[in-house]
Design a protein around this nucleic acid. Structure first.
Length: 569
RNA sequence: ACCCCGGUAGCUCAGUUGGAUAGAGCAUCGGAUUUCUAAUCCGACGGUCACAGGUUCGAGCCCUGUCCGGGGUGCCA
């Protein structure tokens, strides 16, 4: 609530004109308990020393100020000096009406005029997506949509892993163990198979790894045969990836893999050398980062090959040149924290002024162990989504048996993938995720389907109303809160913009899922306990209208999360 | 050895810049459907916020130390 915070700062300034502060830090917060009002301000306690007065006296002086803004009905001082703010209910009702008519639902355009490049997903191109790839795509695409909604210009870039050592390993693997028939039918599975075999061999035979590195160097220096093989791998992988992206609803503005920057790698290293940043050490070109207390950053290996850091440095330069962003945001797992600290440190030394953020998330692991392609204990993302859909379908068949088969499948697809996405998004990105089938596909409680179900029930109310009262016009009926739960619903609705801003700026999709779940829960309680279609005329219309605003907010919120809304479940 | 995270109810997890009585879901138990979709709702049960100090009007949150877990630490990405 930006306007309430602003007013509160003014109220403090008026009450204490002689104070040596502008009260810039003062803000209001939602109350944890309705008995403390709708919003609260706790600043009086913190200012006791500065103002040399008892906190309670400070709060009382602020509360005694002559004028209240239109939105407030009253202010109360409680306990040691809490300021409890009560919104005026009529104002609240008008505000809900206005926000519902607004395209952005009252969300401030905090990102207007700013450009951010978002780097997420970025899968390795030599293997199929597995459940460990879900988080970067999922969290990244939500942050992407949130930023767009807040007015940022977003350039979503899929920085494919298409130019690293894994290709050396894969080329060796394909050459020795490749099966062309399998390559046609299930290319990514086949690439993964030969990769695993080849990788296994590096453990037993040290010269194998050297050969893999040599193949990579050949590829990176333009060897025709390796390049041809690489192009085939890329084409087949991309087809597979596009299919998965359609299923996940992930979209990019640009797909520049590491290979896109391949011609700039040598120049990047030369530039670092010219500026005296990169020096030779143990046969490699490295940047020492002792001032930053970081380990050395290797920008060219002793065998002449370039690595991830080189590629990322070239990428930053290219993005700055092409998009002139205010900020570049990387979304990867936690293991890359050090890498990005190093890359960002080198960028600062190179004089880049663009903001650089690394948003990392916790690894996904199995109850018994960390999974990895190399260990062969992966669960394919495709298989997870299939299982989720079939579980959803079973429930739909049981509860919506009147729905035709095709529609049941369509709903199951939306609910299944929604459940998987939501289960991931609803926790703090930084926590480590231990994968279990049941948790990943929860269909009740705090889950995607719960929200989709709440939306579908509202859609049903809307349709039934239209059927029974074809002449009715709930959309113009002034809102008014007859029941406490209706006011509680309105209070939640007007928080939408604050929630989106916080979710985006803290890079936490779970801020949005928590909010939507709370909203849907409040709505469900309203739905269960208060009649609307059977309420008297007038009351009926305003309740149906309130339902409509909840539906609009739910739909927008689910859309930002990448979950489909269904009119019927 | 060093660096970065984490430890909150039986399980899985939330917890705005430090605020009032630490919250959900699942599980368990008890209720609600001649009704607008029961994938729902209402209620009960459940806590030494890892441990020990410290900072202050006030600490799950900040500081120090310890224990436990995950990740990382020059030629993978």
């Amino acid at each position: 609530m930006g306007m309430l915070s602003g007013w509160m700062r003014g109220a403090f300034a008026r009450a204490f004109p002689e104070a040596e502060t502008d009260f810039a830090d003062i803000g209001v917060a939602e109350t944890s308990n309705p008995e403390f009002g709708d919003y609260q301000c706790n600043a009086a306690m913190g200012l006791a020393k500065l103002l040399r007065q008892a906190p309670r006296a400070i709060a009382e002086r602020v509360a005694a100020g002559p004028e209240l803004p239109d939105c407030l009905a009253r202010i109360e001082v409680a306990g040691p000096g809490f300021l409890n703010l009560y919104l005026d209910s009529a104002w609240l009702a008008r505000y809900v009406e206005r926000m519902a008519a607004d395209k952005t639902l009252g969300t401030p355009a905090v990102g207007a005029g700013q450009t951010v490049v978002m780097d997420y997903g970025s899968p390795n191109m030599t293997k199929p997506l597995h459940i460990g790839h879900l988080r970067s795509h999922n969290i990244g695409s939500v942050l992407d949509r949130l930023h767009r909604f807040l007015g940022y210009r977003v350039v979503a870039d899929n920085h494919l892993g298409d130019w690293g050592t894994q290709f050396g390993i894969t080329i060796m693997g394909y050459r020795h163990f490749g099966d062309e028939a399998a390559m046609q039918t299930a290319p990514l599975e086949e690439l993964e198979r030969v990769y695993v075999l080849s990788y296994e061999k590096t453990k037993a035979d040290p010269t194998w790894m050297e050969q893999c590195r040599a193949e990579l160097v050949k590829l990176q220096s333009g060897d025709a045969e390796n390049l041809e093989m690489w192009e085939m791998f890329m084409r087949l992988s991309m087809e597979e990836l596009d299919r998965m992206y359609a299923r996940l609803g992930v979209k990019y503005d640009v797909v520049h893999g590491e290979s896109y920057y391949r011609d700039k790698l040598a120049g990047t290293v030369a530039n670092l050398q010219a500026k005296g940043l990169a020096v030779e050490s143990e046969g490699a070109q490295v940047v020492f980062l002792e001032e930053e207390k970081l380990p050395v950053c290797i920008v060219r290996k002793s065998d002449g090959g370039f690595n991830y850091a080189t590629s990322d440095l070239a990428t930053v330069a290219a993005r700055v040149e092409e998009f002139n962003p205010d900020r570049i945001i990387y979304i990867t797992d936690e293991r890359q924290q050090l890498h990005f600290k190093q890359v960002f440190a080198v960028c600062r030394r190179l004089g880049f002024e663009v903001g650089l953020d690394h948003i990392w998330f916790g690894l996904m692991r199995l109850p018994e162990a960390t999974f990895s392609t190399r260990e062969g204990n992966v669960i394919k993302l495709d298989a997870l989504l299939d299982e989720a859909e079939s579980r959803a379908l079973a429930i739909i068949q049981a509860s919506s048996s009147d729905m035709d088969d095709a529609q049941q499948r369509e709903v199951a697809a939306a609910v299944g993938v929604g459940a998987v996405k939501y289960a991931d998004l609803s926790q703090n990105p930084q926590s480590l995720v231990t994968f279990t089938w049941d948790k990943a596909m929860a269909l009740d409680g705090n889950s995607g389907p719960y929200l989709q179900y709440a939306y579908a029930r509202i859609a049903s109310v809307r349709d039934k109303y239209a059927e029974r009262y074809p002449e009715g016009t709930p959309e113009t009926e002034p809102l008014c809160f007859d029941e406490a739960i209706e006011r509680a619903l309105a209070l939640r609705l007007i928080r939408f913009g604050d929630v989106l801003t916080r979710a985006a700026h803290q890079y936490k999709p779970n801020v949005l899922t928590d909010y939507l779940y709370d909203l849907a829960q409040t709505y469900s309680s309203f739905y269960q306990n208060v009649p609307f279609l059977k309420a008297p005329e007038g009351v009926r219309e305003r309740r149906v209208r309130l339902c409509g605003v909840v539906a609009t907010v739910l739909k927008q919120g689910l859309d930002l999360l990448g979950l489909q809304t269904l009119e019927r479940i």
